[in-house]
């Protein structure tokens, strides 16, 4: 049967479409020209400039502090949530619980940002690192719970039963069997939470207040009134870091034994 070439052409075109802007950005980060109009020769000047911008490093530090703390808390909350959802899957409470975890995933970011802002303003909480942290845990939690839940559902429950049959108590079974098996899921969820936290602009922008600047907020103000080549250089560095993180997470979430594949 002769198959149409059309879908194949669309796929190749879409891949080009996906990579074209990123490629141009990376190339331009090495361009000596200030406005990226044309190629003026290879240069590392923007990278060197970047290292002399204390505001960026300060923002990067803030981002890292928030991402690490939000990841830690959301991993704990998300994992317990997934365990509860998995274990008591038939109870009515878990259905409400699931809805509560699922809704933030479909809520547009701007709505989450403004609703949190209104809550913080009404509660009289000063906007700053604390409110950013609270917001980040809130949206990371659901993602962690979903990733861990997916892992739990792939489980071979007979392993747990075997452990019980051999006389292990609930806690021992959890610590020795379930947790090691769950570990890749928790790590993948944590990595996702970390990336989401580092990446988030909209929600952070709403709840940050004037004093605290994260990297995406810094990038936004650079896009609005800064110099494009510096953003190109910064983006390239972030791209390399993201690719490394993706490669790492791929390795972690890949099943170790062949039979699982």
């Amino acid at each position: 049967m002769r198959r149409s070439r059309f879908p194949f052409i669309v796929t190749v075109a879409a891949l080009l479409f996906l990579y074209l802007p990123i490629l141009v950005l990376v190339v331009n980060s090495f361009n000596a020209s200030r406005f990226g109009g044309g190629w003026r020769g290879f240069s590392l000047v923007w990278y060197i400039r970047l290292f002399h911008e204390p505001a960026i490093w300060q923002a990067a530090r803030t981002t890292l502090i928030i991402a690490l703390s939000a990841t830690a808390v959301s991993v704990i909350l998300g994992t317990t949530a997934a365990l509860a959802l998995h274990r008591y899957s038939k109870s009515r409470l878990q259905r409400a619980h699931f809805a509560l975890i699922y809704m933030p995933l479909v809520m547009p970011e701007i709505l989450m940002g403004i609703s949190l802002l209104m809550l913080f303003v009404s509660a009289g909480l000063p906007l700053g690192l604390g409110t950013i942290f609270l917001a980040h845990v809130t949206f990371c939690l659901s993602f962690v719970a979903m990733v861990v839940l997916a892992r739990l559902q792939d489980f071979d429950e007979s392993v747990i039963e075997a452990s019980r049959d051999l006389g292990a108590g609930g806690w021992t079974t959890f610590r020795k069997i379930r947790l090691p098996l769950l570990w890749p899921g928790i790590l993948a969820g944590g990595l996702l939470a970390f990336t989401l936290s580092v990446d988030d602009f909209v929600i952070t922008f709403f709840v940050a207040g004037p004093g605290s600047t994260t990297l995406p907020i810094r990038i936004y103000s650079m896009i609005k009134h800064g110099s494009p080549p510096l953003i190109n250089a910064l983006s390239t560095i972030l791209l390399v870091l993201t690719f490394a993180a993706v490669a790492l997470s791929q390795r972690l979430s890949r099943p170790k034994t062949k039979e699982a594949a």
Partner: peptide, 26 residues
């Protein structure tokens, strides 16, 4: 079950469900 559910449930109730209701009120 309640013990395992409450951390995430309460967190999202306070920082997701409540603020969404707030939007309507405000």
């Amino acid at each position: 079950e309640v013990l395992m559910t409450s951390p995430s449930f309460l967190w999202l109730a306070a920082l997701f469900a409540l603020p969404t209701a707030f939007v309507f009120a405000i």
